[in-house]
Design a protein around this nucleic acid. Structure first.
Lengths: 200, 200
DNA sequence: TTAATTGACATACGCGATGTATGTGAATAT
DNA sequence: ATATTCACATACATCGCGTATGTCAATTAA
């Protein structure tokens, strides 16, 4: 086998640091995570950290982006599996909320992320997710399936509901029980954008 | 007039520190707010801070409690002025959106609060704004005007929509135009919780 | 009125963590 | 083979929190 090149080793340390970051940030929270301990647990020093990510926030941004991108991908897959359209949109939302059961996601993405990195709608991963929602809503609007309200506004509000639901589940004492309530409320509110109300 | 007693002076310093906390936390965020600078801006030292509030988190809790209480009062007033019921709920939502336009509220109560103090429903203030929404929804549920979904969940989702709307408006190029879109979208989603008699 | 005591706040210190400046050795280029 | 780059380690400066201790005015008691 071929010897490791320099770029390969650097990528290796980036992966190690992000992995260590996920563990430390999830377990102790961003504020209480020591970069000395974190880098040591990866067999490195803070030198590697500041060379690769600039500062502590840089590592958090990288960790959040990795996790949030994976979340968006899973949500999109669920939407496609549900056949797209309205059912797809609901499946995306439901999946996003269910992911909030993961303690790592709860702590890093839903709690510390907004506090230390700012408004989530400015995150690269969140913007991608928003564009996907806008596209789906656009199709539904062309079909006359939803009320004539500004598409971007609807997309932002829907994502806001899902994010808020996820946050609620994340901080709940009983995540499993809260999950069902959150999903029901999400679908209830979402039904408001449909032209035809569901019969119950 | 009577000379200032000791308890009166202490209350004065508490007021000064909370006021300084609101300014510093809103402008620099909780994490980057220096207690040295904060207390100095109030003409005091960190000694007063730790004597009155125990630690940095104690001051944040006091600040959040004060703001959260004021928010609840304004929302309730708006709801009452609209005559309660569904109109009152919509008025509360609009009020919440307008309140969340305040950068101080955005940063301290809506972002740093949950991150550093934990789940808002566990705050000493018990998130009074949310409680007001829950109370109104309870009335509507008794009247059979809304779908049978968990009241707390609905309240949280509605507030989540309002929060997201406010954040969007706040960062918009044209806040006035965006505000109308946001409120329309809010009312659109909110209508999802109403039962529609004509479809039964 | 005056001496004793309380307590609200200031001052001083230790500890830990971040960020930067500098050093080093292995991989790459000439 | 020598020079150079650069990924990372090491060493250092700084800053901010929390605590321990000091101080002086306001209260209390005689």
């Amino acid at each position: 086998m071929t010897a490791k090149t320099r770029a390969e080793k650097m990528e290796e340390t980036r992966v190690k640091l992000i992995a260590a970051g996920r563990k430390a940030f999830a377990h102790k929270g961003y504020a209480d995570a020591s970069m000395d301990e974190l880098t040591a647990s990866a067999g490195l020093t803070r030198g590697a950290l500041y060379h690769n990510f600039g500062d502590k926030l840089g590592l958090l941004a990288a960790v959040v982006d990795e996790i949030d991108s994976a979340m968006a991908q899973k949500a999109k897959d669920a939407g496609d599996a549900a056949g797209g359209g309205w059912n797809g949109l609901m499946a995306e939302g439901r999946t996003y909320i269910e992911l909030a059961l993961d303690p790592e996601i709860q702590r890093i993405v839903l709690r510390d992320g907004p506090a230390f990195l700012g408004d989530p709608s400015n995150w690269p991963s969140q913007n991608r997710c928003l564009q996907a929602t806008i596209a789906t809503l656009g199709e539904l609007a062309d079909q006359g399936a939803i009320k004539s309200v500004d598409i971007e506004a609807l997309a932002r509000m829907l994502n806001g509901v899902a994010l808020n639901a996820a946050l609620w589940v994340a901080t709940s004492d009983d995540p499993q029980a809260t999950l069902h309530k959150a999903i029901s409320a999400f679908e209830c509110l979402a039904s408001g954008v449909l032209v035809k109300q569901e019969h119950r």
